[in-house]
Computed example of a mutant assay.
Amino acid sequence: MPVILGIDDLRPLPRATRIARTSREGVRLLQEHRDGFIDELWLDHDLGGDDSIMPVVTLMEEAAFSGRPFQIGMVFVHSANPIGAETVVRSLTRWNYQVRRATA
């Protein structure tokens, strides 16, 4: 069964096998899957209030910088915030993650 993770404060993401609703939950979720393969990772930029996906992006960048990137087939960024979404796409693409803008 494919591993499809979503980090989004509102969307149901029906294909996701697990969903985190905050950046803190998202970091924990990725850490739980550290040594496995993630088929798809769905990211929303704005996670309610002052929360955003950036702590998750930072975790992924640091993992790649240390030579041990997360093993992810495709990262989908589905944010309604175009500037935030572009920041995520650029940041993760820079570290050789496969990233696409998408609609959830």
Rank of each mutant, 00 (worst) to 15 (best):
F65S: 12
D35K: 11
G48L: 09
D39K: 07
P12Y: 09
D46E: 14
E86L: 09
Q31W: 04
Y97C: 02
L10N: 12
E86S: 09
F76A: 06
A80D: 13
G84W: 02
R24D: 14
G67Y: 05
R94S: 14
F70S: 04
W42E: 12
A63I: 07
H33Y: 11
I38K: 03
A64W: 05
I83H: 11
L5W: 04
G26C: 08
V89Q: 04
P82Y: 08
A20C: 09
T17C: 10
L5D: 00
I72S: 06
R24S: 10
R28A: 15
F70N: 00
G36D: 14
T93N: 10
I4C: 04
E32V: 03
D9Y: 12
D39V: 05
H78T: 12
I4D: 03
A102M: 10
E32K: 08
D39Y: 10
R11E: 14
G73W: 01
G67A: 04
Q31A: 13
D35P: 02
G84A: 05
L13E: 01
T87F: 10
T17Y: 07
Q71G: 08
A63T: 08
V57R: 01
D46P: 02
H78N: 10
Q98E: 14
G6E: 03
A104E: 13
R90P: 00
R101G: 06
A85N: 00
D39T: 14
I38T: 02
Q71P: 05
E86G: 00
G48N: 07
T58A: 15
L43P: 05
P82K: 05
T93D: 05
H78V: 12
M1F: 09
R34H: 11
V3G: 08
A102Y: 12
S66Y: 08
S79Q: 06
T22M: 07
M74L: 15
I7D: 07
R90A: 13
V57I: 10
